[in-house]
Structures are given as C-alpha cells and as structure tokens.
Simulated scan of single mutants.
Amino acid sequence: MLAILAAAALLADATADVAKLAWLAGSWVHEKDGVTVRETWLAPKDGVMGGVGQTNRPGKKPFIEYVKISAEPAGATFTATLPGQAPTPFVLLPGKDGEAVFENKAHDFPQRVIYRRCDPDLCAAVEGEVKGKLQREEWRYRRVR
C-alpha cells in the first residue's frame, strides 16, 4: 500500500512539473542557411504535452520527429520518436523556471535536451559527449502562433 501511495505522489509531482512547462506551448520556427526547423507543442493537459518537429533542407526529404513530455514514475519525461528508432526518454532535471533540461546519460547522442525562454523567443539545444568531447547543437525559435 505504501508503494502505491509513493508512486501516486511521484506521478502527481511529475504532473505538476509538466504543467510548469506551459511556456513551451505554441508553434515555433528557426530559419538559417536555407534550413527551416519548425516545432509545435500542445499545452499541458493531464500530465502530457504532445509535440512534433519538422526540418526542411533544400533538396532533401523533410525530417519529422514526434515528441512528448509526460508524467512518468521517473519524473517529467521528454520522449523523442525519430524515424526508424525506438522512442528515447530523457528525464527532467531540477532547475529554474523558464528552463527545462532533460537527461538520459545512457543515450549515445544527445544525452541532454534543453529548452529555455529567451523572451520573446524559445532557445533549444541538444548536447552530449561524443568520443570524450562535448558536442552541442542550438536553435533559436521565434513564435509563429
């Protein structure tokens, strides 16, 4: 019985953490060097936010990524689903308001997915170690709606 109560409390905390990420909701676009990256997030509801990302490069097929942030026993969890790959979870680390750092140390690259408000924009990054060196990719999105 205590285990069930503890699990329920953890899920309640994770649900509250997902709700705190409402600032991420909306449609965002990053354009640079002919490449357009769009990301759209639904507002949190019942411990879940759904999202999709699309990258368009000249002369290449668009790349689509499905993402979600959900309340899980491990905490608020960002899960990315890329074509041909199993879903990959990243757990929210404690941090300040207006910033979300999700981590999965066991993943090859990235190990961290980062979002933060850069009013009025949204800054995002992925980072991790590759062959012992920190690698990082960054995007600065402007709100589309």
Rank of each mutant, 00 (worst) to 15 (best):
M1P: 05
M1S: 15
I4T: 11
I4K: 14
I4G: 15
A6G: 05
A6I: 01
A6H: 01
A7G: 07
A7H: 06
A8I: 06
A8F: 03
A9H: 07
A9G: 10
L10W: 10
D13V: 15
D13W: 12
D13P: 04
D13N: 13
D13G: 13
T15N: 15
T15V: 11
A16M: 02
D17M: 11
D17K: 13
A19D: 02
L24S: 01
G26I: 03
S27D: 04
S27M: 02
W28K: 08
W28T: 01
V29H: 05
H30N: 08
H30R: 06
E31D: 10
E31M: 09
D33I: 10
D33F: 12
T36K: 14
T36R: 14
R38H: 08
E39L: 13
E39Q: 14
E39S: 14
W41F: 13
L42V: 11
A43R: 00
A43G: 03
A43M: 03
P44M: 07
K45C: 04
G47S: 07
M49C: 05
G50K: 11
G51S: 05
V52N: 07
G53N: 03
T55L: 13
R57K: 14
R57P: 02
P58N: 12
K60F: 05
K61R: 12
K61M: 10
P62M: 03
F63C: 05
I64E: 02
I64Q: 09
I64F: 15
E65H: 07
K68T: 07
K68Y: 02
P73M: 06
P73V: 01
T77F: 05
T77N: 05
T79N: 09
T81K: 15
T81F: 08
T81Y: 04
G84Q: 02
G84T: 05
Q85H: 15
Q85L: 15
P87T: 09
T88M: 15
T88R: 10
F90Q: 05
L92W: 02
P94H: 05
K96E: 08
K96M: 09
D97L: 10
D97T: 12
G98C: 12
G98P: 04
G98D: 03
A100D: 04
A100G: 03
V101I: 14
V101E: 00
K105M: 10
A106Q: 13
A106P: 10
D108F: 12
F109Q: 01
Q111E: 03
Q111R: 08
Q111F: 03
V113L: 09
I114F: 08
I114Q: 06
Y115Q: 00
Y115S: 07
Y115V: 02
R116K: 15
R116Y: 04
R117I: 12
C118G: 13
C118E: 11
D119W: 10
D119K: 14
D119Q: 13
P120R: 14
D121C: 12
L122H: 03
C123R: 04
C123A: 10
A124D: 00
A125G: 02
A125L: 08
A125F: 07
A125H: 06
A125I: 03
V126Y: 08
E127H: 13
V130I: 14
K131C: 02
K133Q: 12
K133D: 07
R136F: 05
R136I: 12
E138G: 11
E138S: 11
E138I: 06
W139N: 09
R143P: 08
V144D: 12
